[in-house]
Design a binder for these strands. Structure first.
Lengths: 188, 188
DNA sequence: ACCTGAACACCGTTCAAGT
DNA sequence: ACCTGAACACCGTTCAAGT
């Protein structure tokens, strides 16, 4: 909301960054349905067409939004593969739930989904703990699926008056633990 | 495609069922982006407003579509809880992947997501195998999350030239097995 | 070069008028 | 009662005209 108000100041020049700032504020406050080129432009005190000097089209704006949000995911760390997988999964989930209304954009089955793009770094981190390339891919693939589903469900249920966040966190932690224990038996 | 063509026959009266038939055909063939009230109406040889005599609004049409697709999910069966969980998860995934382009609608974090609605029947089936109510809910919650994430990822990757379906199936089966083995240790 | 108003081809839905 | 055309308030984007 603060960002939206700041966006109304008409002195600063238009830029991709300022456009993304406003787009993020609108989508966070009012949801993806409210995010239109015309709306972002009017928030910036200009016409829709002015945005096209800084962004090729709306899809590119959405991609930029997803990319910006996901830079907050911390690099996976830890010495054991389970620890690496856990910190990665937890960080991805926390980041996405920090932007509940953007979740469909972050997990969507369009384009090279950002979630899958991040998978490469997870695979690498897992390999550095001693896992084989095959095992690292296997673990990443399945953890990513569980995280994606959890984020969808959790974002949906916190929007309505679902269970408290603490309970969703606990369910996630238990599920991740179960998945990792089960995977351990499948490693070569 | 066949349904769309059949829809052009202008003799039959309009009905919710015929509208859903056409909507399903359009969305399956051309994706959810192509699905509009005006498009469905024109496919039926009438104007957009005629649809509103049988469907309150577009959201209700989408809900009807999701509901219709998900009736194909088989009732979970089996004597042990693992077998019940496996048949349910597999049936939900297969049904959703039979309608790849509808997946965002089926797993979306809006409204009482149909996936969660179906969860109640899974909980009941699990309880009938001897699981406690708490355990049945725990297993259902986590399996549903894994299934939702898997379907999102699988629908996205088969749309592009991703890995063959057989490999995605195997990844899913292994992941489900891992999840269930891990959950087994958490049961009371 | 960068910007932008008018215009085009769409949306979902309200409303009033038809049968 | 059921149906539906015109109209309203929106979309994203092209194109031509401005600076």
């Amino acid at each position: 909301m603060a960002a939206v108000t700041a966006g109304r100041t008409e002195t600063q020049p238009l830029s991709r960054d300022r456009i993304l700032d406003v787009a993020l504020a609108v989508a966070s406050d009012e949801g993806l349905e409210a995010l239109s080129m015309r709306r972002v432009a009017s928030e910036l005190g200009t016409g829709a067409m002015s945005l096209y000097n800084h962004v090729p089209d709306k899809q590119a704006l959405l991609d930029g939004l997803a990319e910006r949000v996901l830079t907050a995911v911390e690099a996976p760390s830890g010495s054991g593969w389970r620890e690496v997988a856990t910190t990665w999964a937890t960080s991805v989930r926390r980041t996405m739930l920090d932007h509940r209304r953007l979740v469909p954009l972050l997990v969507t089955p369009q384009r090279p989904a950002p979630l899958l793009a991040m998978a490469a770094s997870a695979v690498q981190a897992l390999e550095s703990t001693g896992l084989s390339a095959d095992d690292a891919r296997h673990v990443t693939r399945l953890v990513a699926r569980f995280v994606a589903g959890s984020v969808m469900v959790d974002a949906a249920s916190t929007r309505r008056g679902g269970p408290p966040r603490a309970q969703l966190d606990e369910t996630f932690d238990l599920g991740l633990e179960a998945m990792l224990s089960g995977l351990e038996a499948q490693l070569t």
